[in-house]
Design a protein around this nucleic acid. Structure first.
Lengths: 226, 226
DNA sequence: CGGTACTTTGACCAAATTCAATCACTGTGG
DNA sequence: CCACAGTGATTGAATTTGGTCAAAGTACCG
């Protein structure tokens, strides 16, 4: 997603939301008022394809994935959203994909029309263009490098310990790969010196410029030599 | 793009725009006023990645493709838009992709904020979700079947003669494939009896339900038997 | 006609998937 | 505290899909 002119800089999925808002959201979990914060347990659905659309939500805490299911076991994860991100845009009054919490999540419904809803939609369009480009034209290692940079959010810091809070299956379904390919390319990036692994959960990014070059496809055979 | 809950039904790229608007647009081609219709010759740029964003355009006539370029010869076409479609959404004040006319095109800039600009953005989001799903999870023949259904627009009519107004290269770059794979899968669909070819330009769709089943991935090994 | 550009076809190749173990972490119970 | 399932991740081998390279074929346009 880090093409030269990609203007979208989503906040890292690892920042902390205001504590009082979270607390209020937790207390009101069961009161299902519109415009009231909503809390989800891991695995719980925010909405499902085919349901009448509820307006977009702003995510305050946790991780939510949005995906399209195809016949068979195939699915494409279209978004892995963290705090600050907006999910749930839908046209035509019905949801066209599923949204499920990956970790405990707090969300607030957004008002119908607003200046920042418009901005969020434009950001969503840009993000999906990034994703389509990744899925259509990038190699497996380029996809994984792109994903890792995306997981770092805005603060690119060498040696940063990066907790992987999504399973291999989720990474694979987001990147249009299978889990084995994701595994092999983690190893490939390690062997290139771009990262180090701690346990199975965490990753330390060692060479951000390299990761960027790989993500952008500059290392591609036909690309300019460097 | 024809998943069960896809609510987006773009007009066919083959419908005719109001004649008087087109005529007015043609006359004013060289007067580069904002909010005035703009005419493009095939190959001419509407905008390019990195340029300051101009607001979205509504396409009145012709075909415009929107794409992202990657290092090397790789590019991902993100949209092949026909009359009635809106192109040129951009976040952050700069374009993040290129837009080029495929055939002579007439466009009118849209006003800043409007109810139908909002609807167009939602439709664009849904369309890009379709595309990402196609690129991430569909096989070559599924992609081509999806593309053909999309080219038919709203009126699905058996035996309809469908002019292919885009090159194999453009189809390939839109579907995340190479031209040879597109060719081979045209043959595959012909052999399945889904279509017939006339010359190299036109295609006659013979079995729309089959095309739909293929496009949706119902024929996939792991899918429900049928 | 002849040249050019685009498409198709064929043979081969490579990246990614599939299938099948194996490994490593986690949590549980002895 | 350690053995041991159980789950998810990794590794390896074989396979497959789609890509690459090269050679026709075919329409189009002068």
């Amino acid at each position: 997603m880090e093409t030269a002119f990609s203007p979208v800089h989503a906040p890292s999925i690892f920042h902390t939301p205001p504590a009082h808002v979270v607390e209020r959201a937790r207390r009101r979990k069961d009161e299902a008022f519109a415009n009231e914060p909503r809390a989800l347990e891991p695995g719980e659905n925010l909405f499902a394809a085919g349901q009448p659309a509820c307006g977009p939500y702003r995510l305050l805490e946790g991780l939510v994935m949005v995906f399209r299911a195809l016949p068979g076991p195939r699915r494409q994860i279209l978004d892995i959203a963290g705090p600050g991100r907006t999910v749930g845009f839908s046209a035509g009054g019905r949801h066209d994909c599923d949204a499920v919490a990956i970790s405990p999540a707090i969300l607030v419904p957004l008002g119908e029309t607003g200046k920042d809803e418009s901005a969020a939609m434009l950001a969503e369009i840009a993000r999906l263009r990034d994703l389509a480009t990744l899925l259509g034209r990038k190699t497996a290692i380029e996809r994984l490098a792109t994903f890792l940079l995306q997981m770092m959010g805005e603060d690119f810091e060498t040696g940063r310990r990066l907790p992987m809070r999504v399973s291999r299956q989720e990474i694979a379904d987001y990147l249009g790969l299978v889990i084995e390919t994701v595994s092999r390319n983690f190893v490939a990036l390690k062997n290139l010196g771009a990262l180090r692994r701690i346990g199975r959960e965490d990753v330390v990014i060692l060479d951000i410029p390299m990761l960027r070059r790989i993500a952008e496809g500059s290392e591609w055979p036909g690309a300019v030599a460097n």
